[in-house]
Simulated assay, not measured.
Amino acid sequence: MLNETHRNITINHCSLNYTIWNGGEHVMLCFHGFGLDHSSFKIVWKAIKETHTIYSFDLPYHGTSQFSKNEHTIRPKDWLALMEKFLASEEISQFEVMGYSMGGKYAMITAELFPDRIKHLHLIAPDGITTHFSYRFSTYPFLFRKLFKTQIENPWLFKALVKTLRTLKIMNNYSLRFAESQMDTEFKRSQVYHSWVNLRHFLPSLKDLANQINERNTPVTFYLGKHDKVINTKEIQPLYQLLPKSELVILESGHSNLLNSVAKHLKTKKNLNQPI
């Protein structure tokens, strides 16, 4: 059997592409961060391939997946239809879920939609727990969305805002540099726009998710980087405090290299014969 296979699920002209890395009998679904694609999880698969087979997705507006770029929003019910078709096609009954940064939102919604099928929820510096004012400002009101869209070709407002925040020291310089790196080309700005605007209603219900997890004693592990200035312990509190049995793993890492640190951590646990 080949170690790597590429497939896709198509519904209503939306194509969700994914890659399968074959390994052990346990199944893990993986959702990447912003600006990345399915390949970012290959290092995780290498660490756990003796026990796990990984299905790693190209999320909407990333990689080779194809989603509409009008302002029709993607909602959890749309994700449910895609995941139901995917699980039936691959004949998957039980699975673990892992989400990194932006992918944490997909991981949480998947866990919320399939509470009886999740064996373990892994959240790596997850986005989607705390909704920032800047996100609501740029995606919810119609006029602000239109203003945000102008920034794809003419990023004057974004540059002016960063300059002001830097001058007034409202945000730390690392976060500003991270934001600049995500908006430094027209392609990236378009990716940001559609990932925010078309997914503005794509959010987990933290209370419902926590209730389902606690009722079923589903294992949940949070992984944070000790030096991560993008997602820290404060960002995860609204969910973490609702999950008294969850595990928090702090790794010697920043945000961008956190998947490497998680892979090393999982490999160590495997070598110690501990469940991941």
Rank of each mutant, 00 (worst) to 15 (best):
N8H: 14
P219C: 00
K267E: 13
A111G: 15
N260L: 00
K77M: 11
L203Q: 14
E252L: 03
T150M: 04
E71W: 08
K207E: 15
I11S: 11
I109W: 10
K163I: 01
T268W: 02
K159R: 15
L168M: 07
Q66M: 12
K234Y: 09
S40R: 01
M28G: 10
H120Q: 13
D58T: 00
I213E: 01
F95Q: 12
A111S: 15
S138G: 09
H194A: 00
K267P: 02
I129H: 01
K85F: 08
M28P: 00
L242Q: 07
K226Q: 15
K85I: 00
N198T: 13
I250Y: 09
W21P: 03
S40G: 02
T139C: 12
S138Q: 03
Q237T: 14
A160F: 09
I236L: 05
E215L: 11
E247D: 12
G24N: 10
G104A: 04
S40A: 11
K77A: 12
M183L: 14
E180W: 05
M102Q: 13
S138W: 01
L248M: 07
L224Y: 11
Y55V: 09
L165G: 02
Y100L: 11
N211V: 03
F34R: 01
A47K: 05
Q191C: 05
S56P: 03
S253V: 00
I109E: 04
Q241I: 14
D78T: 05
K149A: 03
H13G: 10
S68D: 09
I250Q: 07
I118T: 01
I170Q: 07
A81S: 15
Q237F: 07
T51K: 12
E84P: 03
H194F: 12
H255P: 02
L243Y: 11
